[in-house]
């Protein structure tokens, strides 16, 4: 018989709340929030096309993991990835465009020797329409994995042909999900068209407290079409977090249970009901720990999100 059948009432309530969190469903709590601080259960979001729950804070690797063969830097990045996985992270996102990042991820995974919670996401980035499978295979070799959970077409490059090949690979069980990405607010109209017309599982675009453009059309469309949304550039390439960190965290943010600026900015993102995951990138273990605080604890409600965005805009 499962343990929770013998648990106390408090434990039962915790379990129920955790289940709701896992389902990505809102929980009301006085004061702030959609989700209460019930326990240390990571905040998860459902992938609409499958119902699978994934941790709402992922990890990007643009710039931060492009360190070449430098053994010292590779050891540091291994610790960053180890910390991420230890603290409940799952989604690791990279691309062949990120230089040596995929090889560095592969090195780190090999050192860590821990693959279970990993949700491996990379991209196809080549103008050669016939090179989709070859590039996916090469990326998998660099990562040291058998197959990717998610393969995305990077920045809409040759997307028609790549999507066709990726759908066929998904059909054949060679990868689990197919997506498409853009960043810096590029080509949103074309992205919307793809979201309407193609059976993709994921879409990835820039979204942060300082860049809410995706809220107008992309996020509602993702919700309507049942497409998981990955928010890239949550700190705007580091500029946003560097800017806000020059100012003290306001008391009303702290009162809402948000521990630091990284926690606040990331929870701003994942509190949006259409967002599946935010993928901040860092090369530092202490920053990874700060980021991963956003995977637990209360989420801001709509009023608090608006207030936070207005405050950030004024800094």
């Amino acid at each position: 018989m499962p343990d929770h059948h013998q648990a106390t009432r408090r434990r039962l309530l915790r379990t129920a709340a955790a289940s709701l969190l896992s389902a990505g469903l809102p929980i009301s709590a006085p004061g702030v929030v959609r989700a209460a601080r019930v326990d240390e259960t990571p905040i998860r979001r459902r992938v609409p096309s499958s119902g699978e729950a994934v941790a709402a804070i992922g990890m990007g690797t643009w710039i931060t993991f492009n360190v070449g063969s430098d053994p010292r830097a590779r050891a540091q990045r291994t610790e960053v990835l180890r910390t991420f996985l230890d603290l409940g992270g799952q989604v690791v996102d990279s691309s062949p465009m990120y230089g040596s990042a995929e090889a560095v991820i592969g090195h780190a995974l090999d050192e860590i020797g821990q693959y279970d919670p990993l949700f491996a996401a990379s991209k196809v980035w080549t103008p050669d329409e016939h090179a989709t499978r070859e590039q996916v295979k090469r990326s998998a070799t660099l990562w040291g994995i058998d197959r990717f959970d998610l393969m995305q077409v990077h920045n809409l490059v040759a997307w028609e042909a790549h999507l066709e090949s990726l759908f066929a690979m998904r059909e054949a069980g060679q990868l689990r999900y197919v997506g498409i990405t853009t960043s810096h607010g590029r080509r949103h109209r074309e992205l919307e068209r793809i979201m309407r017309e193609q059976p993709i599982d994921f879409v990835q675009a820039s979204y942060s407290a300082a860049n809410r453009e995706a809220e107008a059309r992309l996020l509602p469309l993702a919700e309507e079409r049942g497409i998981a949304f990955i928010a890239n550039r949550p700190f705007q390439g580091g500029r946003l977090i560097d800017r806000v960190k020059r100012h003290p965290l306001p008391g009303w943010v702290r009162d809402a249970g948000l521990a630091n600026w990284a926690d606040a900015l990331l929870k701003f993102i994942i509190a949006h009901p259409a967002v599946t995951c935010a993928i901040p990138a860092t090369s530092r273990v202490d920053h990874m720990r700060e980021n991963m605080q956003a995977l637990r604890g209360p989420l801001p409600d709509e009023a608090l999100r608006d207030r936070l965005a207005r405050h950030v805009a004024g800094l």
Partner: peptide, 27 residues
């Protein structure tokens, strides 16, 4: 392929093409 490759790169701004950090360059 060459034209598409060039078009792909022209889609980026100079700062988007910076693939590494100052720390990595110094290393």
């Amino acid at each position: 392929t060459l034209v598409t490759t060039l078009a792909t790169w022209l889609n980026y701004r100079p700062r988007d093409l910076l693939m590494f950090s100052a720390e990595t360059y110094l290393r």
